[in-house]
Design a binder for these strands. Structure first.
Lengths: 243, 243
DNA sequence: CCAGTTGTAGTCACAGTGACCAGAACCGCG
DNA sequence: CGCGGTTCTGGTCACTGTGACTACAACTGG
């Protein structure tokens, strides 16, 4: 029951002995949508012994830097992605003592969502991968414990689409409801009925706000679609449950 | 747009310079239900300059210790609570550079839920507080940034009761549906209709499993209630939304 | 036995949703 | 120009889940 090596009386003393100052890092799982598919940003680590492996962009935390700043810096330095407006939220912290073979590193994982960036990430050592590829780990080797972080990030995104207005973080403003629907379809991996989706979105208060603009039809033709902007709603009431 | 003091070329080098190894701590927000009210465990910090203040039980992470182990150790050492079966989950990590005046400490906050423990926590420097007291911070001084962690913990518990079977973590097995209902009422702070609550719980697959035992009526009398055990469901489909 | 309390079962109206269908507004082509 | 093909938008209908409520069951103490 009780923890070995400690007693209640010893606990009263200020505990500075036997306490390590481990390194703290931030790893970012950046998701975006490209070609109608959900994509994950991965980079090749610096370490020569990890050649051929891929990893989430991550940086160690500097002493004067907030965790959010470290996340932004990791994206900027490792993938040249500067998106100060991107949605960024903590996922969870991975602190297993053996997760990094080079020593004790506690990693704060972040989830980032952006509209498709202008392809600056395909430079040097950063690429977007289809999440289906990563999920089955088909030949793709993920470094450290990032194969545990990635599924958590994807599941977080999938579930947050249900009860928050987070889907709008994937599209540039203004957007059509079809674009927003394709976000849900890509993240959830299921087709949705356009009419029911529309009814649900416009009936949810402050999810999106209508503009008077029209979007030109795509290459397939079709009726022009109204353009919308993000509403001020954070949570959706009631939620939009996946089928 | 770009991060000051860093360039893309500098990023390729292995970055060991300018990186701090900050201290990592775990703080635990333990919630339980006593006298029909939601209670939060707080302790008096060791530091003499924090006399009169209260804080979440927290410990620094040792180098061979997982974060979960540190959370259990914090509860054991600071409040003599040894509950290996208690529900424990990460809340989020607080890493603002100025959150601890004594230096850079990154804190991984945990949420813990237990059935009412046998009052061992009222010893030396640990007490349960009504969350209403803490919420309004009525004369209660919370150390560090724990006044930010506590509302996050309470809100997490409230929302997780909606879409997970977590309410059963607050009651000892076997339990009656009235006990389970009082969990929801205490955490959400609203009364629920007994009949509708019952219909909802038993119709949700694998939320609870019926036994053939009966619980004796309480001091107010009344019909004996059937006893139930936790089902194997983790998530509730559909969710039990708060009114 | 009776009033009070709690647990359990059922009824009714209503909101939200999935599965459709139909029309509106564009496209390219003959 | 008409016409089929496509997408967007509005509507109907059946069904589910829920809130409000009533009724009954099974115990208590006086």
């Amino acid at each position: 029951m009780s923890v070995p090596g400690s007693t209640a009386t010893a606990a009263v003393r200020t505990s500075t002995a036997r306490v390590s100052t481990c390194a703290v890092a931030v790893d970012v799982a950046l998701l975006t949508i490209r070609d109608g598919e959900l994509k994950l940003l991965l980079v090749q680590p610096d370490s020569p012994e990890l050649a051929g492996w891929w990893a989430l962009p991550g940086r160690r935390v500097r002493d004067d830097e907030s965790l959010d700043d470290t996340a932004h810096r990791a994206l900027a330095e490792l993938a040249e992605i500067n998106a100060p407006g991107a949605h960024l939220e903590q996922l969870r912290t991975y602190g297993d003592p053996s997760r990094d073979p080079r020593g004790r590193v506690v990693s704060v994982a972040y989830l980032a969502l952006t509209p498709t960036p202008g392809d600056p990430a395909d430079h040097h050592r950063a690429r977007f991968f289809d999440v289906a590829e990563v999920g089955i780990a088909r030949g793709l080797r993920l470094a450290y414990d990032h194969d545990r972080i990635v599924p958590d990030a994807i599941e977080r995104a999938r579930s947050k689409l249900e009860y928050t207005a987070l889907a709008t973080a994937f599209v540039k403003e203004p957007f059509t409801l079809a674009q927003l629907r394709r976000v849900y379809e890509a993240v959830w991996g299921v087709p949705l009925d356009p009419a029911n989706f529309r009814r649900k979105v416009v009936s949810t208060p402050n999810f999106v706000v209508e503009t008077d603009e029209l979007a030109p039809p795509g290459p397939e033709g079709g009726r022009p679609a109204k353009r919308y902007r993000r509403g001020r709603a954070i949570r959706l009431h009631p939620a939009m449950l996946r089928p």
